[in-house]
């Protein structure tokens, strides 16, 4: 009976996926902060001569990638905002069936996002970003990649739950 608080606790034994995710996400976030801070400072030195005109765009796009790479980890840890107050009042077997159905629903939804996300990444390949003239393909790619990783995390978690369930039954 709890909604997740906004503070996401790190597990004691992170999986390989989590460790790889962290190895990408942490440097990315620190780089974003460095660029943003440099951008604010540069506006005030040398009469703004070296002011960065691309920092806003880079920060936005870097965060889009960061969010889609972080989402699979949230899914794996069951840490996404969830309202499970009502289902928790149901009997355990029904809860399990619902959980499986919901996981399948997530796979269908994310499957749609992988397929159409890839399609839209290609549609947007000729579209160039305003500041750096970067093809938006590279930014849109975050959606199919993130969605695929979410499917992967969902399946891995379902397998883990089945295994844990079998262990409980064996005891």
């Amino acid at each position: 009976m709890q909604e997740q608080s906004e503070i996401v606790e790190a597990p004691e034994n992170p999986t390989l996926l989590e460790r790889i995710g962290e190895a990408v996400i942490v440097p990315l976030m620190l780089a974003i902060i460095a660029i943003g801070f440099a951008s604010v400072c540069l506006r005030y030195v040398f009469n703004g001569h070296y002011a960065l005109f691309w920092s806003e765009e880079v920060i936005r796009y870097a965060f889009i990638w960061l969010f889609w790479l972080a989402a699979p980890i949230l899914v794996w840890r069951r840490a996404m905002f969830t309202v499970d107050l009502f289902t928790n009042m149901l009997p355990k077997p029904i809860q399990r069936v619902i959980a499986i159905l919901l996981d399948l629903a997530v796979i269908v939804l994310m499957g749609t996002f992988v397929y159409y996300g890839w399609l839209m990444a290609r549609v947007n390949a000729p579209q160039l970003s305003s500041a750096l003239s970067l093809s938006l393909f590279w930014i849109y790619l975050a959606i199919p990649v993130g969605a695929a990783l979410i499917i992967f995390a969902t399946i891995a978690r379902m397998l883990r739950d089945v295994r844990n369930g079998a262990q409980e039954a064996g005891r």
């Binding site: 899914v75 996404m80 969830t82 499970d84 289902t87 959980a99 919901l102 629903a105 997530v106």
Partner: peptide, 9 residues
């Protein structure tokens, strides 16, 4: 939402 699917999904 009430079935317990995460809000975003």
């Amino acid at each position: 939402l009430l079935l317990g699917l995460p809000v975003a999904f």
